[in-house]
């Protein structure tokens, strides 16, 4: 990874973020329906990231110890456990199932 690559990667990522903040926000504000869409984006996009991190193994889907750890986390979140407890339980469950 050369300096040119690092800068190109950084400029691309920064441009996407700024485009979203200025272009996306302007669009959302111009069309009233989009305003509500904006508030729903985090649930949809972050859930997609969670799905990928929980079930993806390369280009295939799998249910494994990691999925079980996230499932335990989901139950604890539903029971309103503190976030520290949630992430420690997710790690411990996954690690124990891999012993």
């Amino acid at each position: 990874m050369t300096w040119t690559i690092i800068i190109l990667l950084a400029v691309g990522v920064a441009s996407l973020r700024l485009l979203g903040m200025y272009g996306g926000t302007a669009l959302v504000r111009r069309v009233p329906m989009f305003e509500r869409l904006g508030s729903l984006i985090p649930a949809a996009v972050v859930s997609a990231v969670i799905a990928q991190l929980t079930f993806a193994s390369g280009k295939s889907l799998t249910i494994d110890a990691r999925s079980a750890g996230v499932a335990v986390a989901a139950v604890l979140i539903w029971r309103r456990a503190p976030i520290i407890v949630v992430i420690l339980a997710a790690a411990a469950t996954t690690a124990l199932l891999r012993l």
Binding site: L16, R17, L18, L19, G24, T25, L27, V28, G38, A48
Partner: peptide, 22 residues
């Protein structure tokens, strides 16, 4: 590789658009 790096970061643009409205 660069395009892959940019595409996976596109979600941050969506999140920025969402944050920008609030």
């Amino acid at each position: 590789a660069l395009i892959a790096g940019w595409v996976v970061a596109s979600r941050f643009g969506l999140l920025a658009a969402s944050l920008g409205t609030r």
